[in-house]
């Protein structure tokens, strides 16, 4: 009896703690979304309002009308950095997994670049792009973003290829498939979901970058995060407009995170845990 009571008590405690964790996780997101649909006269009042009876889309209209350009800039830059990373990353990921090219040293060096500090590369990239007259172009941001996306893509795809049993490829080879045919007909379909997962992550890493875009763009090629950071000065008290823009930046990532939920931990731990 005593044991059973203790057990259900610990269970209740567990639910309460999980409820608290959920509240802490969701409240900031809720607050931003709420601010983005609240009429301006309700914002920054004391005491704050936790719901609104007069939701408005004026801030969203402002965000879409004025910040759409930066949204598409982010879209162009992140997609490009992702496509390039997936193209070269699939080739080398396959070679690293199947032929151990460069032993352990080369893939590990590539992995270590995941921790390479952007600020260290930002300074020389600024000087180079300045000399090449490429500052404030999409290319100026896409190129350094490859530091973020390529090492990740190589390492993830290497892991996904390694999970396809080599015997499967060998069996197809005995059945008369050419090597390239095996890769196309056996390996690629099996790792296709892994490649999609990798691509979504690459997109998010590039989308979330701030430092490279901050230093290498001014206005024309500015990405959404830089635009949000800039609104602080330009629009002092436009909390609603900034919230709508920030929510606009969050939406694509949020959707992808839902798609990726099973892989989030694996992606962030670089495959160290599954």
């Amino acid at each position: 009896m005593n044991l059973r009571m203790r057990k259900s008590l610990s269970q209740a405690m567990g639910y309460i703690l999980i409820g608290v964790a959920l509240a802490f996780t969701l409240f900031p997101i809720y607050w931003m979304l709420l601010t983005s649909v609240q009429p301006s006269d309700e914002l920054m009042q004391s005491p704050p309002r936790f719901i609104t009876s007069r939701p408005t889309l004026e801030h969203w209209r402002f965000a879409i009308e004025n910040k759409w350009k930066y949204f598409t800039n982010s879209l162009i830059i992140s997609s490009s950095a992702t496509v390039i990373a997936i193209l070269v990353g699939s080739l080398s990921g396959y070679a690293f997994a199947r032929y151990q090219v460069g032993g352990d040293t080369l893939p590990f060096w590539i992995l270590s670049l995941k921790f390479f500090p952007p600020i260290a590369a930002a300074v020389p990239f600024f000087l180079m792009m300045n000399k090449l007259h490429l500052l404030d172009t999409h290319i100026a941001v896409i190129i350094p973003h490859l530091i973020i996306t390529i090492p990740f893509a190589v390492w993830m795809i290497k892991g996904f290829v390694a999970e396809v049993p080599q015997e499967l490829e060998e069996a197809a080879m005995i059945d008369g498939c050419s090597h390239l045919g095996v890769i196309r007909k056996v390996t690629l379909p099996l790792i296709a979901p892994g490649i999609v997962v990798t691509a979504l992550f690459c997109f998010i890493w590039s989308w979330n970058d701030f430092l490279f875009a901050l230093i290498l763009t001014r206005s024309h090629a500015m990405t959404l995060p830089v635009a949000i950071a800039g609104m602080r000065e330009a629009h002092g008290l436009m909390w609603g407009a900034v919230s709508a823009t920030a929510a606009m930046a969050t939406l694509p990532v949020l959707i992808m995170a839902i798609v990726l939920q099973k892989y989030i931990v694996r992606g962030l731990a670089l495959g160290a845990v599954k």
Binding site: A21, L22, T25, L26, P28, I29, W31, M32, I204, W207, N208, F210, L224, P225, V226, I228, A229, R232, V242, S243, A246, A249, T250, V253, L254, M256, A257, L260, Q261, I264, V265, L268
Partner: peptide
């Protein structure tokens, strides 16, 4: 749900 925060753009988190 508990994993969501780490996917959000850090600049947006700063603004939050």
């Amino acid at each position: 749900i508990l994993l969501i925060p780490m996917m959000i753009t850090p600049v947006v988190v700063g603004y939050m």
